[in-house]
Simulated scan of single mutants.
Amino acid sequence: MIPIIVGGALLTAGLVACGGPDTDQATASPAESVTFENCGRELHVDSPPERAVTLEQNATEILLALGLGDQMVGQGYQVDEPLPELAEAFDEVPVINPETISAEQLREALPDFTYSTLGSFYSADGVGTLDELDSLGVPSYASEAGCPGAAPSSPASFQGLFDEYRDLGRVFGVEDSAEQLIAEQQQVLDEATRDATEQPTAVWIYSFYNGPPIVAGAGGMPSAISEAVGLRNAFDDVTSSAWPEMSWEQIAQRDPDVIVVADLSSRGRPGDSAEDKITQLRSDPVASNLSAVRGDRIVALSGTAMDPSIRSIDAVAELGDWLTTTGVFQ
């Protein structure tokens, strides 16, 4: 029984009465409790969740990749078309809100577990803090690379993603699925490994929200992806923010060998598409003189893959193939 507050009233909800999984499905997973540390506090889950809610798309796709669609009752914050291999399962998960799920909407869904790779969703103004949800009997997991209200304890990495898959495998009793997913992604990393005496530099451009480019700084997934394919993030020494604003003049000082632009076409905002960003690069008087622009060494990757996600490994494969095709390492 889960205490849920809706409209200020304390309710006690039983899963069967709320349209939860049937008995066969509910007993298919082992009823084992797990306890481990997550984002600086102890997370305890009594038994594998049956009514999980994901707060954003990266979390949704990770659970679906682990085969957990039947244990999900809601999702939110959709920013991209679902991965083709997950599209059918993705469409089966109810959309609570295609943008940000509110506290009231979350509680009305009667979840027994929530998950987000972006800790900013866990706030007093959002669905509630991790501690608040724990106190309501709704254990919640946030990615260690994006703990709410705190700087990451360690840089984003593929090993961190693998640890996250293992944590979720334990929570849901699907450890074998987690290990299989890890093995598949590790194989891509192994195949991408490149021995290079010198690492070409790359600037990762996410957007032009306020005019100046927002680029990848230290500690984010772009650095991990760069390292995997033999590149070096040109702004890996900037620790003030994972995505700092940099002027074209600052980028020109570093004159990267490669420019990676985020394709955020699905969001539909002006300037979000890779094509818009490349047009800006070629028309700006400073950017157009960058070596990478003059040499046409610009590649577009999914913006979603630039946050720790199931898509990050696809970015490794795509970027590795592009580097081979363009002869950057010759």
Rank of each mutant, 00 (worst) to 15 (best):
54 T>F: 01
55 L>P: 00
116 S>I: 10
116 S>D: 11
73 V>G: 00
56 E>R: 11
9 A>S: 12
59 A>R: 03
34 V>I: 09
45 V>R: 00
57 Q>M: 09
83 L>N: 06
49 P>M: 06
129 T>R: 03
105 Q>S: 14
9 A>G: 11
48 P>Y: 05
43 L>I: 10
18 C>Q: 09
50 E>I: 10
11 L>V: 11
7 G>D: 15
82 P>L: 07
62 I>A: 05
88 E>L: 09
65 A>G: 13
37 E>N: 14
115 Y>M: 13
85 E>F: 09
118 L>Q: 09
67 G>A: 10
6 V>C: 10
98 P>M: 09
32 E>M: 11
31 A>T: 14
123 S>C: 02
32 E>G: 05
43 L>E: 05
32 E>W: 02
101 I>C: 01
41 R>A: 14
74 G>P: 02
93 V>E: 00
127 V>W: 00
12 T>W: 11
130 L>C: 07
61 E>Y: 05
133 L>A: 08
114 T>F: 03
87 A>L: 07
91 D>Q: 13
60 T>K: 07
103 A>H: 13
70 D>F: 05
81 E>Q: 12
132 E>D: 14
60 T>A: 05
11 L>Q: 15
56 E>H: 11
79 V>F: 02
98 P>R: 12
114 T>H: 01
112 D>G: 01
81 E>W: 04
110 L>M: 08
76 G>H: 01
134 D>W: 03
22 D>G: 13
52 A>N: 07
63 L>G: 09
17 A>V: 13
89 A>G: 03
19 G>Q: 11
88 E>R: 15
18 C>P: 04
39 C>D: 02
134 D>H: 13
37 E>K: 15
83 L>Q: 06
101 I>P: 06
130 L>T: 06
69 G>W: 01
107 R>Y: 08
122 Y>S: 03
52 A>L: 06
103 A>D: 10
10 L>K: 14
134 D>I: 06
59 A>S: 12
90 F>G: 00
85 E>K: 11
121 F>N: 07
16 V>H: 12
14 G>M: 09
85 E>H: 13
13 A>E: 08
24 D>G: 07
63 L>Y: 07
90 F>N: 00
99 E>D: 08
133 L>I: 07
14 G>Q: 13
44 H>K: 15
119 G>W: 01
14 G>I: 01
77 Y>P: 02
112 D>L: 07
102 S>N: 12
70 D>Y: 06
45 V>A: 06
74 G>H: 01
34 V>M: 05
120 S>E: 12
78 Q>G: 14
119 G>Y: 00
68 L>D: 01
7 G>T: 12
32 E>Q: 11
81 E>K: 13
33 S>V: 03
90 F>L: 05
109 A>H: 03
85 E>D: 13
94 P>M: 11
64 L>E: 02
83 L>H: 04
99 E>I: 08
112 D>A: 05
32 E>F: 03
121 F>G: 04
66 L>K: 04
115 Y>D: 04
126 G>C: 02
43 L>Y: 02
22 D>N: 15
20 G>F: 06
124 A>N: 14
17 A>C: 09
73 V>D: 00
93 V>K: 03
55 L>E: 04
46 D>F: 07
95 V>M: 12
54 T>A: 07
